[in-house]
Design a binder for these strands. Structure first.
Length: 198
DNA sequence: CGCATTTGACCTGCGC
DNA sequence: GCGCAGGTCAAATGCG
């Protein structure tokens, strides 16, 4: 079931960006933007905001700062799967930050409220599973995401978002009309409190 | 027929 | 400078 993210992560500048203003509306947590009946959100990792070097925060028992792979015990090579800030090009498009999720799911395509266009697929070293590349199909929106299966446990899917949507999700209208539902174990913090607490 | 996906080629950065 | 690996492009293909 859901794990409670450490407050250090929730209060991080990147998470503030993540909750507000986009891609998700103020006050809602990301989990509410996935159909959680199909998968288990187990880990997530904010790996950079695109403006500073290095990791911003790491969450869950399996992720430690300095080891940017989710629960991997495999030795790292210089070019193994990594979530270094900026990756190889040291650049994050789409306005900003990068956040990665590790989710238990049979489905690699999850409806997060945005429309994505696949533009690439690549076999990556040290992993039997291909990595898929998607761009937001909205005009003037340059957010990208990468989706791949966890090589340690193929039942998990790792999704990495690059950037911030500059438009609202089609689902925002729907969610704004719904009563606020918070999954057990999650805390809800308004973005204003996040701002003032820093 | 239009649009999304596939997939091989190409580009770029990094380590040796 | 060279080779490797990740990321992107774009023509071909498939599907509704």
């Amino acid at each position: 079931m859901f794990q409670v993210p450490p407050n250090s992560v929730l209060n991080s500048p990147a998470m503030e960006h993540f909750q507000n203003p986009n891609p998700y509306p103020t006050g809602y947590h990301v989990s509410e933007f996935f159909d959680t009946s199909d998968f288990e959100l187990s880990d997530y990792l904010v790996v950079g905001d695109g403006s500073e070097g290095g990791l911003l925060a790491a969450a869950s028992d399996n992720v430690t700062e300095g080891s940017t792979e989710f629960g991997s015990s495999a030795p790292r090579t210089s070019n193994s799967i990594n979530f270094r800030n900026g990756s190889k090009k040291n650049k994050v498009d789409g306005g900003g930050f990068r956040v990665a999720f590790r989710t238990k799911s049979d489905l690699e395509i999850m409806d997060d409220g945005f429309k994505w266009r696949k533009y690439g697929k690549k076999m990556v070293k040290n992993s039997p599973n291909p990595r898929n590349y998607y761009k937001c199909s909205s005009e003037e929106c340059y957010v990208k995401k990468r989706v791949e299966r966890d090589r340690e446990d193929p039942s998990y899917v790792i999704t990495t978002y690059d950037g911030v949507h500059n438009h609202e999700s089609p689902s925002v209208v729907y969610y704004n009309q719904q009563p606020l539902m918070i999954p057990d174990g999650w805390t809800l913090q308004a973005s204003s409190s996040l701002s003032s607490s820093s």
